[in-house]
Simulated scan of single mutants.
Amino acid sequence: MNRTDGADPEGAVRAWRGLADTSVLLDGFHAVKHALRFDARVPVALTSDRPAVLALADELAPDVKDALDELLTQVPDDRLRALVPRLHPTAMAALAVRPSRAANLEALRRPSRSAPVVVLDDPRNLGNAGAVIRLAAGFGATGVVTTGTLDPWHPTVVRGGAGLHFATAVERVEVADLPPGPVFALDAEGDDIRGLKLPDDAVLAFGSERSGLSAALRERADHLVSLPMRPQVSSYNLATSVGMALFHWSAGRPPGPEA
Rank of each mutant, 00 (worst) to 15 (best):
M1H: 06
M1W: 00
N2E: 14
N2K: 13
T4F: 08
D8V: 05
E10M: 08
V13S: 09
R14T: 11
A15D: 13
A15Y: 06
W16A: 09
T22Q: 12
L25F: 05
D27F: 00
G28T: 01
F29A: 08
K33G: 06
H34Q: 12
A35D: 04
L36P: 00
R37T: 10
R37N: 12
D39L: 03
A40G: 15
A40R: 13
A40L: 10
R41P: 04
P43E: 05
P43S: 10
A45E: 12
T47L: 00
T47I: 06
D49W: 05
P51R: 03
A52W: 02
A52I: 03
A55W: 05
E59C: 12
A61M: 02
P62Q: 11
D63C: 07
D69T: 15
L72N: 06
T73N: 13
T73P: 00
T73A: 14
V75R: 09
D77Y: 14
L80G: 07
L80D: 11
P85C: 15
R86L: 06
L87I: 11
L87R: 15
M92L: 12
A96R: 07
P99K: 07
R101C: 04
N104R: 14
E106A: 11
A107Q: 10
L108D: 01
R109M: 08
P111T: 12
S112L: 03
R113D: 06
S114F: 03
A115H: 03
N125G: 01
L126N: 07
L126T: 13
V132H: 04
R134L: 09
R134G: 04
L135I: 12
A136N: 08
G138T: 11
G140T: 03
G143Q: 02
G143S: 08
G148I: 10
L150N: 07
D151Q: 00
T156G: 05
T156F: 02
V157D: 05
G161A: 14
L164I: 08
A167G: 11
A169N: 08
R172M: 01
E174V: 11
D177A: 14
L178I: 12
L178P: 12
P180L: 13
P182D: 13
P182T: 09
V183D: 12
F184M: 03
D187M: 04
E189S: 15
E189V: 06
D192A: 08
D192H: 03
I193F: 13
L198V: 10
L198R: 08
L204N: 10
A205G: 04
E209I: 13
S211E: 15
G212K: 08
L213S: 08
S214T: 15
A215K: 11
A216W: 00
A216P: 00
E219G: 10
D222H: 14
S226V: 02
M229E: 11
R230A: 13
R230T: 10
Q232R: 14
V233K: 10
Y236C: 12
N237Y: 04
L238R: 05
T240L: 00
T240H: 10
V242M: 02
A245G: 11
F247I: 01
H248N: 11
W249Q: 10
G252D: 08
P254G: 13
